[in-house]
């Protein structure tokens, strides 16, 4: 924090950690630090998409597999909001049903990636030394291994089920998550409150859970949003290679079907609607994640003497 020319409010008051000495910040003032309107729009969109996915079976929409919901390749109209595909299936209904697979992959892949990568990174960053070297090598190998080849390998071995697709993308996510968790843990471990906890007689486990974890969670949470966005796009990529789920369909699979050149020319909506919805969802996730990170970065700066 010993900057020379910080000219924000804190810089205006001097040049050292003493700057913080400006008494309690009132609750009222604290709330003024806004996360922004865009964040809430993004969150609103995500909630809408998730609710639609959940309620798909009870929504008054046609069966997504029903082949006579309209004509073949009908343009969007009052009956079929998003038009129909080559088999005359209702695209609106299919988009909603398709989101179920895409969102599931997005969510569970990230849960897996974080559940494995997070602890791996924290342990590596906390213990340093030999433990760190060993875990870092694993992370490094995971990084170096071409993701696509890994996906091909796993899916061809274990089959094209939803769980396998989640797992595949999750495994690819482990390395970047672990690396970030490790970096954050290393910087947190150097803070004096960790030394203080040790001096109090905390066990390593307690320090990791009580002191490190809460400080790693928030920046990682922001990353989770970005990760989910990547996972959804990743599933789309797998679908293009014909590696996504065999049963059912996802946004990715719908885009593949709609992108046959004749369909694309005659009825662009067949691919454009899933693309559009996926785009909005991914953008919302990215934006929300970004805002979240900035928001907590600011708070972090307000705290951080280092």
């Amino acid at each position: 924090m010993k900057l020379n020319l910080t000219t924000t409010k804190r810089g205006s008051k001097g040049l050292s950690p003493q700057d913080e000495d400006s008494s309690l910040i009132d609750d009222e003032k604290r709330e003024k630090r806004k996360i922004g309107f865009g964040f809430w729009v993004s969150i609103g969109w995500m909630i809408l998409v998730v609710i639609a996915a959940f309620l798909a079976p009870v929504l008054p929409i046609p069966d997504p597999d029903q082949t006579g919901a309209g004509g073949r390749l009908d343009a969007p109209n009052w009956d079929n909001w998003f038009g129909t595909d080559t088999n005359g299936r209702d695209m609106f209904s299919r988009t909603i049903w398709g989101s179920r697979v895409s969102l599931t992959v997005g969510f569970f892949a990230i849960v897996f990636g974080f559940a494995v990568g997070g602890p791996l990174g924290i342990v590596a960053g906390f213990f340093k030394g030999a433990t760190d070297k060993f875990l870092s090598i694993i992370i490094f190998i995971l990084f170096a291994f071409p993701g696509l080849v890994l996906a091909l390998l796993i899916i061809s071995l274990l089959g094209q089920t939803l769980a396998v697709v989640c797992l595949t993308i999750g495994i690819i996510g482990v390395a970047p998550v672990a690396r970030l968790a490790r970096a954050i843990t290393i910087s947190i471990s150097e803070r004096e409150f960790v030394a203080a906890a040790r001096i109090l007689g905390s066990t390593n486990r307690r320090i990791m859970i009580k002191e490190i974890l809460p400080n790693v969670t928030i920046p990682m949470g922001a990353l989770a949003f970005l990760g989910m966005a990547l996972a959804i796009v990743g599933e789309g990529g797998l679908a293009f290679l014909g590696l996504s789920v065999e049963e059912g369909f996802s946004w990715g699979k719908m885009i593949v079907l709609g992108s046959a050149s004749r369909t694309l020319q005659k009825a662009p909506w067949v691919s454009m609607f899933p693309i559009g919805i996926m785009f909005l969802t991914v953008m919302s996730l990215n934006y929300a994640g970004d805002r979240l990170r900035d928001f907590f970065d600011v708070r972090e700066m307000g705290i951080g003497g280092g």
């Binding site: 020319l5 000219t7 205006s12 008051k13 001097g14 050292s16 003493q18 400006s22």
Partner: peptide, 22 residues
């Protein structure tokens, strides 16, 4: 002066080192 006294800001003002929102 101590932190918050305005001593450094005075100097930076003279040096034209303040941010635009000052």
């Amino acid at each position: 002066g101590e932190s918050g006294s305005g001593k450094s800001v005075t100097a930076k003002t003279l040096m034209n080192l303040l941010p635009s929102y000052a």
